[in-house]
């Protein structure tokens, strides 16, 4: 029989088999490790067990909370990010008006121009996107690796910018404002039922509002259980080299 579970969020469900009296527990665990799907659960009559339902609800709850979460500003402050905000005024508006999450006011753009290094080789931007938790979990590891790598290669790096209530396209406006060669935007991915910490990195050569979405090269699935953030940082350094050498990005770049 299954032992009592007190806190459902601390159990490793990649290994927990809830079938009653399984014939081969080891095989079940092996299967479970190969997928995020909820398998080897057992059942109560023709329905799922209470534990399965609770876990599903708990995961869904994490995803919902992630959307409404805020970036811990002490992290961006410590890393020396310059903070700006899109036209969005609060989380609710951010969800309802995707268009406003892509643009800045003229004052904000002037502020960026006035306070940030102009024409750097690489401009780094971080934004909450649909999961601030992803930024909280990964930024402190990926950012310094990225800086170390880029510095060692001799690239000039712009003042890092944190965008509150931002979407991916904010990188175009920022790039145009400060004339960066390569712009990297780190953004929280839409949370799923597997993790709320997954981050994507979008990057473009001479990122511009006039170019289509296909200008962007992306690495997704950056989190503890996916691509480790430090390894993604090192890989980004390589991609920056490629983008600068080829003077293009996105689908134009065949990598």
């Amino acid at each position: 029989m299954n032992e009592m579970i007190k806190d459902i969020s601390v159990v490793d469900y990649y290994e927990r088999v809830t079938i009653d009296n399984p014939r081969d527990t080891e095989s079940c665990i092996r299967l479970k490790k190969t997928t995020n799907a909820r398998i080897c659960l057992g059942r109560a009559g023709d329905r799922c067990k209470t534990e399965t339902l609770l876990k599903f609800r708990a995961d869904h709850g994490v995803a919902m909370d992630a959307v409404w979460s805020e970036v811990d500003e002490t992290i961006v402050d410590q890393l020396g990010f310059f903070k700006v905000q899109t036209l969005v005024e609060d989380k609710e508006q951010y969800i309802k008006r995707p268009d406003l999450g892509r643009v800045f006011s003229q004052e904000t753009l002037d502020g960026i121009k006035g306070n940030c290094i102009e024409s750097p080789d690489v401009q780094i931007i971080a934004t909450d996107g649909l999961s601030a938790c992803a930024i909280n979990a990964n930024l402190a590891d990926i950012y310094p690796i990225l800086i170390d790598g880029l510095t060692a290669k001799g690239y000039t790096i712009g003042t890092p910018i944190f965008v509150k209530y931002g979407r991916v396209a904010t990188m175009d406006q920022i790039s145009e404002a400060i004339q960066a060669k390569v712009t990297i935007l780190l953004v929280g991915e839409r949370p799923g039922l597997a993790t709320d910490e997954s981050m994507s990195s979008y990057m473009a050569y001479e990122s511009s509002t006039l170019k289509p979405e296909s200008q962007r090269t992306v690495i997704s699935n950056i989190h503890r259980k996916g691509v480790p953030p430090v390894e993604a940082g090192a890989q980004l350094v390589n991609l920056v080299e490629v983008l600068i050498r080829e003077k293009k990005s996105g689908v134009e770049l065949k990598i």
């Binding site: 690796i145 170390d148 790598g149 480790p228 430090v230 390894e231 940082g233 090192a234 890989q235």
Partner: peptide, 9 residues
């Protein structure tokens, strides 16, 4: 999986 980050550093 972290050889690139480690190697670079």
């Amino acid at each position: 999986d972290f050889a690139k980050a480690l190697g670079q550093t």
